[in-house]
Nucleic acid binder design. Structure first.
Length: 408
RNA sequence: GGAGAGAUAGCGAAGAGGCUAAACGCGGCAGACUGUAAAUCUGCUCCCAUUGGGUUCGAUGGUUCGAAACCAUCUCUCUCCA
């Protein structure tokens, strides 16, 4: 399978700037860029899918540049319904450095910052040298702007696409970067760039976008119990990530395999077949988790994640040895129990519940187990005698959320 | 600058003086059923509390026994006009 055909098969191509891109992609040798804004200080699973595509292109002989938007991050990409709050330069700076080091560590990409070439453009030159190439009517027609016309959009965010177009132009002229790859929501910004390059220097630039990865119900992919899945294992442990993929909806799992792994089409097709026959075994989910965790955290972490999962879901925590407990919960944050506590107070203090009211609700619902045993007594007094190994109490809320209590 | 409309809990959206801690929908969190899935059903979802209490409806003042609702001023948003 040639590169383009494979990308298409994986469902990674949403829009494409021109038909001749197919051949160019297959031939290799293009320098391209993919961008993200430093709105947070860590990469999450959403970045992962788009950065992986860069890796795929790199492996096929293209040359990726990762742009982290130190300048565009100061402006804000228009969201569908609301203006973004402006964030401080210090924060953007901090986020930039964090994302840069993560991206280099995980993917090994060259990282550039659009602040470097945007910061010195003065307003008059900007209007004379670039503003003349943007027709407001054309800008208004963009989807990102259209959607904001009745809720309002400031000049600042309206200008975002110009900044992104300037980036493309700059990289084209200075780095011979002829292609941009991004999520489908960037299409408007990208075509603004292609247009600028054509008008200002008379050159042809290319781009394609990938569909945004969603869950089966169309909502955002990459959240678990309200928390984002981060790529850094200190923020999202391998165990949590394993659980995230294992819990993925059946109807999406094959799509995720295509998006998020380097398994060959043949392998994925055979997994799909197996999954269709025995969905309850969740072979596809397990393979997905294996591929992603191994790529991000390494084989050892993956093995560890499985081990922890098996122990926790066997429900027989009280049968574990001290050593096994240690292994299972290695690296998991814990709450230190200093003195004896009523169960309700403990749940709040340990962060299991957010208020006593909620803590009572959990207990009366039967959502709380302690060392594998369901707690239903609101008056229960938690003492050292309740530890499973002399120092640890394992609290489970609901089916999947675990908390550790250690006694001093 | 002028004329209208609006601002309600995480979001959307009712409410037009006491029955309102505020309908309904979404989202979120639990429970049941399952395969640690989906769908479905049930409960919870401002804060603290065992009954009960405390703070809310853009902001600040006021009218009233009593205001999210009425009045005044202010802030912000949208639509239209020049």
């Amino acid at each position: 399978m040639k590169l383009f055909e494979e990308l298409k098969w994986r469902g990674l191509i949403n829009d494409i700037s021109s038909p001749e891109l197919e051949e160019k992609l297959n031939n290799g040798g293009m320098t391209f860029y993919i961008g993200t804004d430093p709105t947070g200080d860590s990469l999450h699973i959403g970045h992962f899918s788009s950065f992986l595509i860069s890796k795929r292109l790199k492996d096929a002989g293209h040359n990726p540049i990762l742009l982290v938007g130190g300048a565009t991050g100061l402006i804000g990409d228009p969201k569908p319904n609301a203006e973004r709050p402006i964030i401080t330069k210090e924060l953007v700076d901090h986020n930039f450095n964090a994302l840069k080091s993560q991206a280099q560590k995980i993917f090994g990409f060259e990282v550039v910052n659009n602040y470097d070439w945007s910061k010195d453009i003065n307003f008059i030159d900007f209007l004379r040298d670039y503003g003349k190439y943007f027709n407001v009517n054309y800008m208004l027609a963009k989807d990102t702007v259209q959607r904001r016309l009745d809720t309002g959009i400031t000049y600042t965010e309206f200008s975002y696409m110009i900044m992104q177009a300037l980036d493309f132009l700059y990289l084209y002229e200075n780095r011979n970067c002829v292609m941009q790859v991004a999520g489908q929501d960037q299409w408007g910004n990208i075509t603004a760039g292609i247009e600028l390059i054509r008008k200002k220097i008379g050159k042809e630039a290319y781009a394609f976008t990938m569909p945004l990865l969603t869950k089966a119900d169309g909502t955002k992919f990459g959240k678990s119990e309200g928390n984002a899945i981060w790529l850094d294992k200190s923020q999202t442990s391998s165990y949590e990530m394993y659980q995230f993929f294992l819990n993925a909806e059946d109807e999406m799992v094959i799509k995720y395999l295509k998006y998020l792994t380097f398994l060959t089409p043949e392998e994925i097709i055979s997994i799909e077949k197996e999954h269709a026959e025995r969905p309850e075994l969740r072979m596809a989910h397990k393979r997905l988790a294996e591929e992603v965790i191994t790529f991000l955290h390494g084989k050892e972490e993956y093995v560890e994640a499985i081990k922890i999962s098996e122990i926790l879901f066997s429900g027989e925590i009280n049968k574990l040895s001290k050593e096994e407990i240690k292994t299972a919960f290695k690296g998991m944050p814990f709450y230190e129990l200093k003195e004896e506590r009523n169960i309700v107070d403990l749940l709040v203090e340990a962060g299991v519940a957010s208020s006593k009211r909620e803590a009572r609700e959990f207990v009366s619902n039967g959502a709380i187990t302690m060392n594998g045993e369901r707690i239903e007594n609101l008056e229960l007094f938690v003492t050292k005698d309740l530890t499973v190994d002399g120092e640890t109490i394992v609290i489970r809320k609901g089916k999947k959320k675990y908390h550790l209590i250690k006694t001093a």
